[in-house]
Nucleic acid binder design. Sequence first.
DNA 1: TTCAAATGAGACATTGATGTCTCAATGTTT
DNA 2: AAACATTGAGACATCAATGTCTCATTTGAA
Lengths: 184, 184
Amino acid sequence: MATDRDSVLEAAVGVLSRRPTAHLDEIARAAGISRATLHRIFPGREALIREVGALGLRKFATALDTAEIESGDAQSALRRLVDAIVPDAALCAFLAGESQLYDDPGINELWELQDARVRALFLRGQQEGVFRIELSAGWLSEAFFDLVAGVGWAVQDGRLAPRDSAYSLAELFLGGALRRPDRS
Amino acid sequence: MATDRDSVLEAAVGVLSRRPTAHLDEIARAAGISRATLHRIFPGREALIREVGALGLRKFATALDTAEIESGDAQSALRRLVDAIVPDAALCAFLAGESQLYDDPGINELWELQDARVRALFLRGQQEGVFRIELSAGWLSEAFFDLVAGVGWAVQDGRLAPRDSAYSLAELFLGGALRRPDRS
DNA sequence: TTCAAATGAGACATTGATGTCTCAATGTTT
DNA sequence: AAACATTGAGACATCAATGTCTCATTTGAA
């Protein structure tokens, strides 16, 4: 089902999430195609970047669906989300770094939509008494995304083992850095 | 004491941390000088970026010094670090996003130095029984920096009130998102 | 095998940012 | 006031990346 376009986009992410200013030459080489073909698929750099962003948001939305974040208790939902999103953490890292993506109205709208779902998850968790209410749902949502992007970068650069990534993300975000003195 | 160069660099951070590809025109305007003068101070774009990076690392090192992260118990040290670094969070956001900065050996060495100090803080905290040992000191250090950068972005874009930033950062990182059921 | 489509390699033009220069205007020192 | 230094504005030249084109080669289908 992964069309030709998508496989090129995947390769582009690998390059662009590290160096957002990489030349088209480099992206084409990473995708195993020539610059000419790359240009035949995507009319230009701008279009390519936009498509990568759209792919990222599609995958993000799919992860939210897969995790069924609207169901069950909020903590389990968030843990499911972590598991679903970690494989695409590099894509999130790209989304986080490419702030100019959000100049595009279509992209921005799609982002707002997914972001609202995550914020709603935290709000729900706060109402359920699961998440802390001293921190705003907006900040929890933003910080979560920052950490997902951080995982993406760390894994790509080999500073974090992929095996550990979901655990490290979930434990730090949910439990914080402090050791709990009262683990019954 | 803030030389002319530094005031220009501060202005550059404001622009570059948002849009890393901003033109020199824009940076010059933000600094209130002409492109010609900007060019007289910094020989070129590359030099400017490098200087911004160096300023960021200098400020980061100063924050570590100010917070005396090598003294006292680890948790208090980290809280002092949060207070010391939050005013320069935008600079850290720039450092986090500009990965190509670390191609420069001088910059990279300076970064490694400061990063090692932060890692040592977490390691010490783990040995003191303050920080969780299930998460590696390296990951704690990286995640902390990710959140500092996240605070920088959020404050710059008006999504987080500067007043709340230190509290939000410290509480989330140290205590996590979960409400503690057993707060005696 | 043969024809059609897609691809890769490279040449070339275009474009936009950067780097360099001059000069008039402003500000500063003596 | 006069000499000096600094700045801003603008006109170029330069350069690197992108966009466009052609053509030989490969691939795939009939």
